[in-house]
């Protein structure tokens, strides 16, 4: 890769590699995309749209990409019987994963509030019947990866990777080899996969942990942390879908998702076993 651009955005490290030079205005646009996205959705910022909704409810207008995110969240919500929902935000915060990173649970685990009673996500934006803290972490980072890739492709880049600390999307000929980081040992990998043009996302529950068995992946149906699945990886066409499926795989069987999405996956359970879709049978070390 001829040119590389690293930066911090939405609370994580990003790295963009491209065969062609990444021009200053293109770099600026990437940072702007991240800033706009963060301003809409971050529940860790006082000035974000999501924070305003949490304080007073009402309507938050969203740009065009908001409709795609809402549609995906709704599909995942329906396929997981409510296990995935943006309304998990207030439950995460109540478990201590809040804007101040207090890491002190303030309420016992409880199911997220029901989508239909509270939340209307249309092509125009989000409307809340009453205040609620939303969290689009299930697929938001992936969508921002997509927006950056699309921006770079529109600027003429034909061989480019956007990597948001393990959630990545690539455009280009051939393929690269990506290691699947061992969830219990960051210096090891459980396998490798090839990434051509498409997205690979990863999610693991063991990194963002606090307190007694608390981490950032909740089953919204119970409000409790998922402890059977410890990590998931998904290969899909776009990063928003791959990211969302990574989250959904913590609370749903892959077979339940296979009818609605075209993807490959690896799941790792807390006992160290792994499950995988057939095309990835050779990807894991055994």
């Amino acid at each position: 890769m001829a040119d590389s651009f690293s930066f911090e955005a939405i609370g994580t490290s990003w790295r963009v590699d491209s065969r062609a030079p990444l021009l200053p205005r293109q770099r600026t646009e990437l940072l702007q995309l991240a800033e706009e996205y963060d301003t809409l959705y971050s529940r860790f910022r006082q000035d974000s749209g999501v924070t305003a909704l949490a304080e007073s409810g009402g309507h938050l207008p969203l740009p065009r990409h908001g409709a795609a995110l809402g549609a995906l969240m709704r599909t995942l919500h329906d396929l997981t019987g409510g296990g995935v929902t943006p309304l998990v935000g207030e439950r995460l915060a109540a478990q201590g994963y809040d804007a101040d990173y207090s890491f002190v649970p303030t309420a016992p685990p409880s199911p997220s509030r029901a989508w239909d009673d509270l939340l209307d996500w249309t092509t125009d934006g989000v409307t809340l019947a009453e205040p609620a803290l939303l969290d689009v972490g299930a697929a938001g980072k992936g969508q921002l990866v997509d927006l950056m890739v699309e921006s770079l492709v529109a600027a003429g880049h034909q061989d480019v990777i956007v990597d948001a600390s393990g959630d990545m999307r690539r455009v280009g000929d051939g393929s690269i080899t990506v290691a699947l980081e061992h969830p219990y040992d960051a210096s090891s990998a459980i396998g490798t996969v090839g990434l051509g043009s498409g997205a690979l996302c990863a999610s693991a529950s063991n990194r963002r942990t606090w307190g007694d068995g608390l981490h950032h992946v909740l089953d919204a149906r119970t409000g409790r942390c998922v402890d059977t699945v410890v990590a998931s990886w998904v290969l899909a066409e776009d990063a928003m879908t791959a990211d969302g499926l990574c989250t959904a795989l913590f609370v749903a069987d892959p077979v339940e998702l296979a009818g609605s999405f075209d993807f490959d996956y690896v799941l790792m359970y807390s006992d160290g076993r792994a499950r995988f879709s057939t095309p990835l049978a050779g990807a894991l070390f055994s």
Partner: peptide, 15 residues
């Protein structure tokens, strides 16, 4: 010999 690593070790600088 890999080009990238997909995992969570670098996730969430804020966290």
């Amino acid at each position: 010999a890999v080009d990238k690593v997909a995992g969570s070790s670098l996730t969430s600088g804020g966290f």
